[in-house]
Every structure is written in C-alpha cells, then in structure tokens.
Simulated assay, not measured.
Amino acid sequence: MRAAVYRRPGPAAEVLEVVELEPPEPGPGQVRVRIVTSGINPTDWKTRAGYAGRMPDGFQVPHHDGAGVVDAVGSGVAGLAAGQRVWLYLAAFDNRYGTAAEYAVVPASRAVPLPDDASDDLGACLGVPALTAAHCLGGNPEALKGQTVLVAGGAGAVGHYAIELAKHAGARVVATVSSDEKRALAEGAGADLVVRYTDADAARRIRDFANHVDRVVEVAIAANLDLDMAVLGSSGTIAVYAAEGELALPVGEFMKANTTLAFVLLYGLSPGQLADAIRWTSGALAVGALSALPVIPYPLEQVAAAHDRAAQGIVGKVVLRIAGN
C-alpha cells in the first residue's frame, strides 16, 4: 500500500515521505479500513513537528481522522463487517497506522458506522473535532436541552461541531468570531447569535440575547476570560480544549459564581466518556444534523504541502484524497 510516513519529528518537507508498505493485518479486536479521505487536525501536524516530544517507533503513518470502508475484521469484533463504511477517530494514537495511507488498522472501537447519505468528506471531518465538541458540551444532549451555550471560535473545527451538536440537543447557541467570513460559517452551522469577540459591546449583546449563558466552549481562555465571566451565569461551566500560554484566574469570582473550569484533551478521556461523545455525534449524524467543514483537498503525494497548509490556521479542513479508492 502507499502510505505517508515520518521516521523522526521535524519540518513537513524534511520528514514526510510517501512509501510502499505491506498492508497491516488486523489482530484480535481490530479492523482494517480502506481509507478514502484522511483529515488533518492540529494535533497531527504538531505531533509530526515534534511538539509532543515523541519519537516514532520505527515509522509513523500520521493522522487520527478519516473515512473509508472496512476491508478486513479481526477475531472478536462485533458490529462491524467487511464492506461497511466508517469514520475513524484517534487512529494514530498509540498506533503506527494512521489514516494517511491506503489502509489503516485500528481498534474496532475507533471505527464508527458512517450513514449512507453522509459523504466521505464529512466522515473525515468528524473524529477529533466532533468528539471534543461533544465532551466540551457535557457529553449528554438531554442535559443541554433548553440551555444557552457560548462557542468561542465558532468557525473552527471544534466550534463548528459544538454549534451543530448543541443545536441538535435543543440548546440556544451564541458564537464569537473574528471576521465576516467566519460569521457566515457560524451562522451556516446554526448559531442563533454571532458576534465579533473584539467588539466593545460583545458582552452586552450576548446578555441582551440570553441574559446569561450556561456553558462556554472555549478555544482561547486567556484572551476570552473576561468576556466569558461577563456572560456566564451562576454554576456555569467553561470547557477549554486548546492550550495557550499562562492563565491568571480570578479565584474569588469563580468561587462566588460556583464556576467550573474544565480542561479537555481527547486522549485522556475514559472509554465511557468517549462512548458518550460518539453516541451523541452518531445520533446527530444519523438525522443529518452535522455538516462537513469547507474542505481543502490534497492528493496523498502532497502530504507535506497539506501539513503546511493546515498549520497556517486556515478556515476549513485540509484533507488527503487517497487516490485509487
């Protein structure tokens, strides 16, 4: 099979190459998936660049997310069969066979059925962003019904799915953005109110709309803390999914308001928490409540250029279209 690999961390053009590998065989509890589309997340290019501080074990096929068709099933696997379309998440976590290849072998729990009417692009956009969003929203759509959610960075990948999943659960959604282009994306995802977080009256507009918000899905806590605290109601939650710099907390204000500050990293979730996030995402997917991000496609042979494009912080999702599928 053709696969993108790197053998040490470093700049994309220096360490990524497309090579021929033997297709891996699924072991007990695993499935092999013929990859159609491979999605690139920040965690993928940051790990390849060396931010995680880990050396590959021989080689690493990158990328956690993707969409494809089950090709072979290992012993002990139930609920998946050859020929079934699936979307993948955390494929490269503790596993050298990520989705930047013609085939990937993953634990069966990381391959989730993809409905017939869902595109491969949509399947490749889910994974890390959608599951992170679902957990930031509390993992339980029933508990979110009737609440108001503030999604910071509503045009980003996690923000996009936080809006759609929250709306699917029956919540009202406010999103903050930084440009008119991003406003259009957040509105397209279903946000009830979209404001520029840099506007002097952002907090007032949010309070006029909702009086207060119950939960914040936060991408930049240090920059947005004042706005979050200005609109968050008593016993509210700020769920932070992106790390950035140092943070000084107004501990007294947090205590008086019974505020919960939760930090979310998908790798550290328990199996039960992941199952809750998958259940919510799959339920929304089944009724057409989720949509693909704007897709920027590259062929597998241009994987290094795709990584560099993803690292530029573009609006949308960079994907690899795996030729021959």
Score class of each variant (00 low, 15 high):
91 A>T: 01
103 Y>N: 07
115 P>M: 07
66 G>T: 02
126 L>I: 13
116 D>Y: 08
139 G>A: 06
82 A>K: 15
123 G>E: 09
84 Q>Y: 11
149 V>P: 04
122 L>F: 12
94 D>L: 15
146 G>L: 14
85 R>S: 08
100 A>C: 13
67 A>T: 03
88 L>K: 00
70 V>W: 02
134 A>V: 09
37 T>G: 03
66 G>N: 02
159 G>W: 00
94 D>G: 09
143 A>I: 02
128 V>W: 00
83 G>A: 07
161 Y>P: 04
106 V>L: 12
112 V>H: 03
144 L>H: 07
72 A>K: 04
113 P>N: 11
39 G>Y: 08
154 G>H: 03
126 L>E: 11
123 G>R: 04
50 G>K: 03
57 D>E: 15
83 G>L: 07
102 E>R: 09
129 P>V: 09
90 L>I: 08
93 F>M: 11
152 A>E: 15
66 G>P: 01
71 D>H: 14
142 E>Y: 10
143 A>D: 09
65 D>F: 00
129 P>N: 12
77 V>E: 00
56 P>G: 02
64 H>L: 13
77 V>P: 04
152 A>G: 12
169 A>I: 14
160 H>E: 11
59 F>A: 06
45 W>H: 10
138 G>E: 01
154 G>N: 03
137 L>P: 03
157 A>T: 02
106 V>P: 05
75 S>A: 15
59 F>W: 12
85 R>Q: 09
134 A>M: 12
87 W>C: 00
107 P>H: 02
42 P>K: 06
69 V>P: 00
63 H>S: 00
100 A>Y: 00
37 T>H: 11
100 A>V: 10
86 V>F: 08
81 A>G: 09
88 L>R: 00
66 G>K: 00
48 R>N: 06
92 A>Q: 06
46 K>Q: 14
94 D>Y: 08
111 A>W: 07
67 A>W: 01
108 A>W: 06
121 D>Y: 14
159 G>D: 05
166 A>K: 04
142 E>A: 15
153 G>T: 11
126 L>A: 12
53 G>V: 08
104 A>G: 05
150 L>Y: 07
123 G>H: 05
81 A>M: 02
52 A>D: 14
118 A>S: 15
58 G>T: 01
136 C>W: 02
123 G>N: 09
112 V>N: 01
51 Y>K: 04
86 V>Q: 04
85 R>E: 09
136 C>K: 03
120 D>K: 05
129 P>A: 12
114 L>A: 05
56 P>L: 08
165 L>H: 07
73 V>N: 12
58 G>L: 09
123 G>W: 04
143 A>H: 01
101 A>Y: 07
108 A>S: 15
106 V>G: 07
109 S>W: 13
94 D>N: 15
131 L>Y: 12
127 G>D: 10
70 V>L: 05
110 R>G: 02
138 G>W: 11
94 D>F: 10
43 T>M: 06
155 A>R: 06
138 G>Q: 05
106 V>R: 00
94 D>W: 07
75 S>C: 04
134 A>S: 12
142 E>D: 15
170 G>R: 14
41 N>E: 13
140 N>K: 13
148 T>V: 15
